[in-house]
Design a protein around this nucleic acid. Structure first.
Length: 429
DNA sequence: TCTCGCACGTG
DNA sequence: GCACGTGCGAG
């Protein structure tokens, strides 16, 4: 696992959002991340099979509010919700498969519905979170049990975000509209066209010049602003601050819809909850609900399906094997390893720190000094081998309230951990 | 703060 | 043609 390298795609875009303070909408029906979480992976063994999955863990134990155009702590975090994993739909697949193209988690969705039946990742609004990528390696038999099961975790601090039900910072709204193709309808006209100011135009212009540092009391989340031409970013943003007025609502909807069409769609009711047919396959859209923590532990129906893609069943990843506890206990561990909890105590940096950046990039939850700026190439390793089936694996996850927040100065961007290294922490808690 | 229906985009 | 991803704004 030591040779595995992961590069975040659209890093510049992520950085732009990060500098403004990334917000992600959470809805009852589930909302995608934007920017999407996409990575380029290298260093995998071409023939070995891997599972790639993402989880999103609390970044700290605060609740936030947006006040005076900045995020400030507004109290203690709500009790953490049982975490869910988003297993990449291609999983399991060979190293060759994963490294051949960019791996996209764009179908991952966030919800604030604690009873979400769709397998989306459940988050509390107005809390700060950190997505993490986990790469789980199969053994020589493509199993993910005691013999195999090594995994590594990759964290890109610039992907941290605060969950919201509606955008708080207008700068974020603008960045979303400017960059998300699905929001094109809210963009201004052609380049050079004289735009009417947006009703919020003045406000936006004002914000554009003051979306500076947030409350310095915010915990660091290690923004790494490594040598980006921030002047270029500024030039890109400012002309776009003027946009057209909101599109007219007087225009008839060009597609007649049932009154409740959008409502049903927004709630994701295309498939009824009672529909137990596999979500993967027939629709061609292989979104697979992530197994909930409960299902992982309690052998609920997700078992055997979540990890068992058509490819799996045809290639020796038999369902029986998947139904064994190996992958699930493993994934349960991965899912509930709070960001920084094991890193802070066990990770050993092996990459030379680079000097910190200065200037505006030090805005929202910035990287503290002494962190490597070239990001995910830095590797911290810990090779502590423990039996996979440690009793603590089946213990309930500890509440995330007591997790270690963003790791402090010596924390890694990327951590390679072998299975079991995290188990003692469960025992400790 | 959050939900809902909507217009208007993409794929 | 149509499913579905967006932000908006009323409530």
């Amino acid at each position: 696992m030591d040779d595995i390298k992961v590069i975040l795609q659209d890093k510049e875009l992520w950085r732009m959002f990060h500098e403004a303070g990334t917000e992600m909408i959470v809805t009852k029906a589930g909302r995608r991340l934007f920017p999407s979480y996409k990575v380029k992976v290298s260093g995998l063994d071409p023939k070995t099979k891997y599972i790639l999955l993402v989880d999103i863990v609390p970044a700290d134990d605060h609740r936030y509010k947006f006040s005076d155009n900045k995020w400030v702590v507004a109290g203690k975090a709500e009790p953490a919700i049982p975490g869910r994993l988003y297993v990449h739909p291609d999983s399991p697949a060979t190293g060759d498969h994963w490294t051949r193209q960019v791996v996209s988690f764009q179908k991952l969705k966030l919800t604030n519905n604690h009873l979400d039946p769709f397998g989306h990742i459940i988050l509390n609004s107005m809390h700060k979170f950190q997505p993490r990528l986990h790469i789980v390696k199969g053994d020589e038999n493509d199993g993910f049990g005691q013999q195999g099961g090594a995994f590594c975790t990759h964290v890109f601090p610039e992907t941290a975000f605060i969950s919201v039900t509606s955008y708080q910072n207008h700068r974020i709204t603008q960045l979303k509209i400017e960059n998300n193709p699905f929001a094109k309808g809210f963009r201004g006209g052609d380049e050079g066209e004289l735009h009417e100011p947006h009703p919020l135009g003045k406000h936006l212009l004002r914000l554009a010049s003051c979306h500076g540092p947030p409350d310095p009391r915010l915990p660091s989340d290690h923004c790494h602003s490594h040598g980006t031409d921030s002047a270029t970013l500024q030039r890109r943003h400012l002309p776009d601050e003027l946009v057209r007025p909101r599109r007219s609502t007087a225009l008839p909807n060009h597609y007649p819809r049932h009154r409740d069409y959008n409502r049903a769609r927004e709630l994701g009711c295309k498939r009824s909850y009672s529909d137990t047919s596999p979500p993967c396959g027939l629709e061609g859209d292989c979104h697979r609900p992530s197994p909930s923590y409960e299902s992982l532990l309690m052998s609920q129906p997700y078992r055997g399906e979540a990890l068992c893609s058509p490819e799996a069943s045809m290639s020796g990843w038999s369902k029986g094997e998947a139904e064994g506890s190996e992958p699930f206990s493993l994934l349960a561990q991965v899912a509930y390893l709070p960001y920084g909890s094991h890193l802070a105590r066990e990770a050993v940096p092996t990459a030379a720190p680079a000097p910190p950046p200065h200037g505006q990039a030090a805005a929202w939850g910035d990287q503290p000094p002494n962190l490597p700026l070239s990001s995910n190439q830095g590797t911290w390793e810990r090779s502590v081998h423990h039996p996979l089936y440690h009793r603590e694996v089946l213990s309930p996850p500890r509440p995330c309230l007591d997790l270690v927040p963003f790791p402090s100065q010596n924390s890694p961007y990327q951590c390679h951990v072998t299975l079991g290294a995290i188990v003692p922490h469960w025992a400790e808690s």
